[in-house]
């Protein structure tokens, strides 16, 4: 009971913060709200008995990545005009986006409310996890069952690094 109450509270905080990220005009405020979103997500992971993922979430997302975000925003040195943003003239897109988005939210909402979530229970119940240890289990899965996607992900990151270097390199290639 306490858990579901906590879940409801943290879930609504997460959603509220995520909405704030989108609606803030000032990019720094957006970034701060994004940190809050990440941290609330970490709390949700704890509620799901995934403490390791929660710790990683805080360290990597709320810590490392968001610091970089804020650095980039500072370095970009946005002027006031940029912050304000131009008034858009997308008359048709705005209302239709709002209507369609609303329909999507309602659709997903009904699904969530109607479905009795009896997903298939796996072998790793909270009891087994607390017996073996969360980190050990994540490590075991990564290096046994999911070793192939795990290794592939490294190439994904490598491709992304190469791409970032190419696009950000100062010097336009001569000759």
């Amino acid at each position: 009971m306490l858990e579901s109450l906590l879940f409801l509270i943290m879930g609504s905080i997460t959603i509220a913060c995520a909405l704030c990220v989108v609606f803030q005009k000032n990019p720094i405020y957006s970034a701060i709200f994004l940190i809050q979103t990440m941290v609330s997500l970490a709390v949700l992971y704890v509620l799901l008995h995934a403490q390791f993922i929660a710790a990683i979430q805080v360290m990597i997302y709320a810590g490392a990545i968001m610091v970089l975000f804020i650095f980039v925003i500072m370095l970009l040195n946005l002027s006031k005009a940029d912050e304000e943003g131009e008034r858009d003239n997308l008359f048709f897109q705005k209302p239709s986006a709002i209507i369609l988005g609303f329909i999507l939210v309602v659709m997903i909402g009904t699904v969530t409310l109607k479905t009795v979530f009896q997903g298939v229970k796996g072998e790793y119940t909270p009891e087994t996890i607390s017996q073996i240890g969360n980190t050990q289990l994540v490590g075991k899965m990564l290096f046994t069952k999911y070793v192939f996607p795990f290794e592939i992900a490294s190439i994904l990151l490598f491709a992304a690094i190469i791409g970032a270097i190419i696009l950000a390199k100062k010097r336009i290639i001569e000759d």
């Binding site: 592939i152 190439i155 994904l156 491709a159 992304a160 190469i162 791409g163 190419i166 696009l167």
Partner: peptide, 10 residues
């Protein structure tokens, strides 16, 4: 899909 897409974005 992501490896393909990220390479193509660049």
């Amino acid at each position: 899909l992501e490896i393909m897409s990220i390479s193509l974005y660049v």
